[in-house]
């Protein structure tokens, strides 16, 4: 039995009291896995991981990271606890240089460790090294996503949580982002991601959950999830089983 890194139990969360968007969702992420959360629009996927990251108020349930209760810990303490979150949009500081975007995330590292970590990120993402002096706002969409992921990885997170990393990217960059995530997992990082682009996400994922109306309704092995008629019904409604290239967004 592999070790559970992130354990979300019966989570209820929402922006306004009494109006939960996440309604009793439970998911687990094991060490070294990529877990994908899918679901139709408005299912509460983003709210679920934002609640886990401390950005949406939690009204019930628990979030455990490596067995420690991190339920509703303030968002700025999450990196110290070992959870790095990459928001869907506006996930870099546009007026700061690429290098400063990385440096600003090094707050919890030892002062001497930071330059070495930044060098490791440049080795992993040569595109960023080439542009380290330019403002992050001048990067292409794909490079911004790289920068956001590098910034999240820099603190050695126990789990990397991403909100729709392919959103708004052109098809060329979409495949690049998923290849990048696959490579990051191979280096031993545990990943939880929410995606609209189901086909691409399932191609790199180990397990997947289908979230409907704020609760997980189905769980399965990523590679076979599409062939499951229950999933087709939950997620796709009456649409044909095989999604077109580019996913079911």
């Amino acid at each position: 039995m592999s070790q559970t890194v992130l354990d979300v139990r019966d989570l209820e969360a929402g922006y306004e009291p009494g109006v939960p968007i996440v309604r009793g969702a439970s998911i687990t992420v094991d060490k070294g896995e990529i877990v994908v959360v899918l679901g139709p629009n408005g299912a509460g996927k983003s709210s679920l991981i934002k609640a886990v990251a401390g950005l949406v108020p939690i009204s019930r349930g628990k979030v455990l990271l490596d067995g420690n209760d991190i339920t509703a810990a303030p968002a700025h303490t999450m990196v110290r606890l070992g959870l790095a979150f990459v928001p869907q949009t506006e996930n870099v500081f546009p007026l700061m240089s690429v290098e400063d975007n990385l440096k600003v995330a090094c707050g919890i590292l030892e002062r001497r460790e930071a330059p070495a970590r930044i060098a490791e990120m440049y080795a992993m993402f040569p595109d960023l090294a080439r542009q380290k002096r330019s403002a992050a706002g001048n990067l292409s969409g794909g490079q911004r996503q790289m920068l956001a992921v590098a910034r999240a990885l820099i603190i050695h997170p126990k789990v990397l949580v991403l909100d729709e990393p392919s959103a708004g990217l052109s098809p060329k960059f979409v495949s690049m982002v998923f290849e990048m995530l696959s490579a990051i997992r191979k280096s031993g990082v545990t990943i939880l991601l929410v995606e609209q682009n189901a086909k691409a996400a399932l191609a790199i994922g180990d397990r997947a959950y289908v979230l409907v109306e704020g609760k997980e309704r189905h769980e399965g092995v990523a590679s076979t999830l599409w062939d499951d008629p229950v999933v087709a019904e939950l997620y796709l409604g009456q649409r044909p089983l095989k999604p077109e290239a580019g996913g079911a967004a």
């Binding site: 990251a53 950005l55 303030p74 968002a75 700025h76 303490t77 999450m78 990196v79 110290r80 979150f85 928001p87 506006e90 996930n91 870099v92 500081f93 546009p94 007026l95 700061m96 400063d100 600003v104 995330a105 707050g107 919890i108 910034r151 603190i155």
Partner: peptide, 16 residues
């Protein structure tokens, strides 16, 4: 600088 450009993201990257 991070706070002035995006306060929500500043929290996410661990800024108090």
């Amino acid at each position: 600088q991070a706070m002035s450009q995006n306060p929500a993201l500043a929290r996410v990257v661990g800024i108090d």
